[in-house]
Simulated assay, not measured.
Amino acid sequence: MHALALLAAGVSVVAAIMVITRRVAVHAVLYLVVTLLALAVVLVMLGASFAAMLEIIIYAGAIMVLFVFVIMMLNLGQPDSAREKEWLRPRAWRGPAILAAIVCAELLYCLGPFSGPQTRPSAAITARDVGFGLFGRYVLMVELVSFLLLAGLVSAFHIGRSRAGHH
């Protein structure tokens, strides 16, 4: 299992480097999704499957949709038809597809019958515990993060609108 954890961590590091080095924002978002999925696999291997599912749902799901929406709204670069043709080329999605396949194979192996007996932590965190934490003690932090995301979205819309007005 240690080798699988190191492989998942390696995929996460490689994908994170690819996020930083990509010039096309959509390609960087694809690699960011792979990074988040690889981190979720590491969490599953550590026995924190609930945290892994939260990461997949919240970050790889909702936040990535927000990122793609902002990228589409800003509409930077070349015209739509040329940009879509570039995105559909195999070299654009080959890297994220290979890294995601490695991560998915690891996850299937860990959840399958070959992984051996599953060890459970003595004090598992339940969905109820997370709900009480987020909307009890940390409700102010959750609301501040939601306002921060809203401010980022409004700022991106304003920047995109002002750039469209200058063209």
Rank of each mutant, 00 (worst) to 15 (best):
100 A>S: 14
99 L>R: 10
79 P>E: 06
95 G>Y: 05
103 V>S: 06
112 G>E: 02
102 I>E: 08
104 C>H: 01
100 A>G: 12
90 P>R: 12
83 R>L: 02
97 A>R: 10
94 R>Q: 14
107 L>R: 00
91 R>D: 05
89 R>P: 04
109 Y>S: 12
82 A>N: 06
105 A>F: 09
111 L>A: 15
94 R>C: 05
82 A>M: 15
103 V>P: 00
93 W>P: 05
119 T>R: 14
81 S>H: 15
107 L>H: 03
90 P>Q: 02
82 A>Q: 14
101 A>T: 15
99 L>A: 04
106 E>Y: 02
105 A>G: 13
103 V>W: 01
114 F>N: 09
85 K>S: 09
113 P>R: 11
78 Q>G: 07
99 L>S: 03
120 R>C: 03
112 G>H: 09
111 L>M: 11
97 A>S: 15
119 T>A: 11
119 T>Q: 06
120 R>I: 11
94 R>F: 15
84 E>H: 09
108 L>K: 12
89 R>E: 13
81 S>P: 08
80 D>T: 11
79 P>S: 10
85 K>D: 10
117 P>L: 10
122 S>D: 03
88 L>Q: 14
101 A>K: 04
122 S>G: 09
110 C>R: 12
115 S>C: 09
98 I>H: 04
87 W>G: 04
118 Q>G: 07
96 P>R: 01
88 L>T: 03
91 R>Y: 07
79 P>F: 05
99 L>T: 03
84 E>N: 07
105 A>M: 11
100 A>V: 10
95 G>I: 05
105 A>W: 10
83 R>V: 03
80 D>L: 15
80 D>Y: 08
105 A>R: 11
77 G>Y: 05
117 P>Q: 13
79 P>L: 07
101 A>L: 15
119 T>V: 13
76 L>A: 13
117 P>G: 11
112 G>Y: 08
117 P>W: 03
104 C>Q: 09
82 A>I: 13
76 L>Q: 08
117 P>S: 09
100 A>N: 05
84 E>V: 12
111 L>G: 06
112 G>F: 09
97 A>E: 01
108 L>G: 05
77 G>H: 06
112 G>I: 11
97 A>T: 13
94 R>G: 07
106 E>P: 03
92 A>K: 05
100 A>Q: 11
82 A>C: 01
84 E>M: 12
76 L>G: 00
106 E>V: 15
107 L>Y: 13
